[in-house]
Simulated assay, not measured.
Amino acid sequence: MSDTPLQRPSIFDDPEGYLQDFQRRTSAMRDKAQDLQQAMSEAKSTAVSDEGEVTVTVNVSGGLEDLQLDREVRHLHAETLRTLILDTYRRAAEQSGEQMDAVMERVLGADAETMSVYRDARQRYGG
């Protein structure tokens, strides 16, 4: 990558070039936003407990989408089942966060300043 900054047309020296560059950049931003929106709407993560009794699916924000319980859960103590569900949910939510990180990197670029802000927010707020 070059060390020289990208030269954009000046609105004063090249108003037509400036407008074309502006339209190109806004179009690229719109495309990225659409890609991100599509990826977020499709992103779901599923985790299964070690013995397969509990299956949890969450969306990109960690919201519960589906919970499936195997017939064998009828024989589990309530506290054991609660722990299985919560642990499985946490794994699914963690996977969802990792999946979202990958989507953000793909859309924004791993070295983009916006990606750095995103990573800081995830770290700070536990996303």
Rank of each mutant, 00 (worst) to 15 (best):
L19C: 08
V60S: 00
G17K: 00
V73L: 06
L64G: 09
E98A: 13
M29Q: 15
S49G: 07
E113G: 07
Q38R: 11
Y125V: 09
H77W: 01
R71D: 07
R74A: 09
R82G: 12
L36D: 05
S10Y: 00
R91L: 06
S27W: 13
D31G: 15
T4A: 11
R25Y: 01
Y18G: 12
E98T: 14
S49Y: 02
G127E: 14
F12G: 13
E113Q: 04
V103Q: 05
M1H: 11
A47L: 10
D35V: 12
A33E: 15
Q20R: 05
F22D: 00
E105Y: 08
R122T: 07
P5S: 02
R106V: 05
G109P: 02
G17F: 11
G17P: 05
D50G: 14
D101G: 12
R8H: 09
H77T: 05
L64H: 11
A112N: 02
L69D: 04
Q99I: 07
Y118D: 02
V73P: 07
L6K: 14
Q95H: 07
A28V: 10
R82C: 12
L19A: 13
V107L: 10
M104Q: 10
L84Q: 06
I85H: 04
R82F: 05
Q7R: 09
F22E: 04
Q123P: 03
L19D: 12
V54R: 06
T55E: 00
M104H: 05
T80I: 12
N59Q: 10
M115Q: 02
M40W: 06
V54A: 03
K44E: 10
G97Y: 06
E72P: 00
D3H: 15
Y89V: 10
E65D: 14
Q95I: 00
R106W: 00
A112F: 00
D50Q: 09
E94P: 03
Y125F: 14
S45E: 08
K44P: 07
R122Y: 07
V58M: 08
R74E: 04
H77E: 09
L86I: 15
A110K: 09
P9N: 11
D120Q: 15
T57A: 08
M104N: 10
L69W: 10
D70W: 01
R82W: 03
Y125A: 04
D21E: 13
A78V: 11
E113S: 12
V60M: 06
R8V: 03
A102S: 09
S10K: 07
T26V: 13
D111F: 11
Y118K: 05
T26A: 12
Y89Q: 08
A121P: 11
D31H: 15
S41T: 01
K32F: 14
T55K: 05
E72H: 01
G127V: 15
A47V: 01
G97P: 06
R124P: 10
G97I: 10
S45H: 00
L69M: 02
V73K: 09
Q23H: 13
G109Q: 02
Q23D: 08
G127M: 15
G127C: 12
S41E: 11
S96N: 02
D50T: 01
T83Q: 08
Y18V: 04
R90V: 07
M115H: 07
T88C: 02
I85N: 02
T88A: 02
E53D: 09
S61H: 14
V117L: 14
I85M: 01
D21I: 11
